[in-house]
Design a protein around this nucleic acid. Structure first.
Lengths: 134, 134
DNA sequence: CATAGTGTAACGGTATACTAATACACTAAA
DNA sequence: TTTAGTGTATTAGTATACCGTTACACTATG
């Protein structure tokens, strides 16, 4: 059930709240919804919208800052990094995901070619990327 | 540092021990090293080899049994499932990995095509699948 | 029947992750 | 200078995962 704000989290999702928030922010940048230097909602605003603790939002923003995705001005706000353009973040997300996936494939003893074949024939269309319908 | 047994675990790997053991067993089947109905080392034997607690091995075997990868005869031992042939397990591992990966891609707002392109161009050859050199 | 193998269950300790509560510090505008 | 915004740090509570300890049950063999 989506909250009416720009980001949403799913209380039934087993993943930690702060990780869901990080994914929301990252996806907004990847999809071009948020542009470099655009301000993010304040930790209190977003906390209110999502009905979580401000420190939970803060934890998400802190990790995104550490990853270079956002930067912070104390007393002013949190902003998308100037170099966090859609293409750049998208490439990084893809590279890191590919890296993780290939490691897991290696652990399981399957090859990149087999994995790609499996991805090609995977038929669950319901998990194509989220679209932000505004 | 590999222990001299058939399976090994890495104490520096942050993943839980029982999950590492599950991966070892699964990979042995996927690589054809273990055949259907072949017996697995007993929980005490493997615990001794890996220097972990028997109940840790037991937990791995229990999950593998739940997944249908092995079956258990109390008092007798644990065996690879008769239908757990290399092809079957390999297909399942691939399907589940593909499913997980596409979900994570969707969460990040990237498409299957982009992901496959990233996998194609990923250049870390060091993470091709483990080979069991015997 | 006893024994040595096998698997199994219950319980407890520890560590860590997650989240919230509270209070502090910075900044800009009035 | 004050105020209302902003971010930030510390602390604490809770839950859960992980792993080990201990003891029990089954099975086959001698």
């Amino acid at each position: 059930m989506a909250t009416p704000g720009r980001f949403h989290i799913d209380p039934d999702d087993p993943r930690p709240l702060y990780i869901q928030i990080m994914d929301e922010v990252r996806r907004s940048i990847v999809n071009g919804i948020m542009a470099p230097e655009q301000s993010l909602p304040s930790v209190r605003d977003l906390a209110g919208e999502l009905r979580v603790n401000p420190n939970t939002v803060q934890q998400a923003y802190r990790e995104l800052e550490r990853d270079g995705v956002v930067f912070v001005r104390r007393g002013q706000g949190t902003y998308v990094s100037p170099d966090a353009d859609t293409r750049g973040i998208r490439d990084r997300v893809l590279r890191e995901l590919a890296d993780r996936v290939l490691r897991e494939a290696a652990r399981s003893g399957v090859t990149r070619a087999e994995l790609m074949a499996a991805l090609d024939t995977h038929d669950d269309r319901s998990i194509e990327p989220s679209r932000e319908d505004e």
